[in-house]
Design a protein around this nucleic acid. Structure first.
Length: 113
DNA sequence: GCTTTGACTCTCG
DNA sequence: TCGAGAGCCAAAG
């Protein structure tokens, strides 16, 4: 393991799920929490904030977790460690349309696993 | 081991 | 459409 764990089992599962989000699609904190048989929406967000596999930390590695593809349940961009602007930018680069910090055609882009 | 905190979500007015 | 309040759960102190 090249990278220190620093994460709990619960958080690791979150990262595993996030990694599965296909490019050009998005998911929500809610969907991820439910995927883990839990309602810990907030815990999911916290895990993202502490995400040790973020873009700036390990770049385009296989372990990278596309946390920018995770948004609020209504398709609105909620938060991002490097700023919402950056988040919107990255999503746009992946083919998504962002308007006023909100995802266009959110229902179609949503990945529910 | 209890309290605080947070990148959440839902409901109501 | 928008903001406030309540409910929710795991991690950290």
């Amino acid at each position: 393991m090249g990278i220190y764990k620093m994460t709990t089992k619960f958080e690791e599962k979150i990262y595993q799920v996030c990694k599965k989000i296909p490019k050009g699609k998005v998911s929500t904190y809610k969907v991820i929490a439910e995927k883990l048989n839990s309602k810990a929406y907030r815990a999911v967000g916290s895990a993202m904030n502490k995400n040790p596999y973020s873009l700036s930390k390990i770049g385009s590695s296989k372990k990278m977790v596309p946390c920018h593809r995770v948004v609020a349940s209504n398709g609105h961009l909620h938060g991002f460690a490097h700023g919402l602007k950056k988040k919107a930018q990255m999503l746009r680069k992946e083919g998504l349309e962002i308007k006023n910090n909100k995802i266009k055609n959110f229902k179609e882009k949503l990945c529910k696993f």
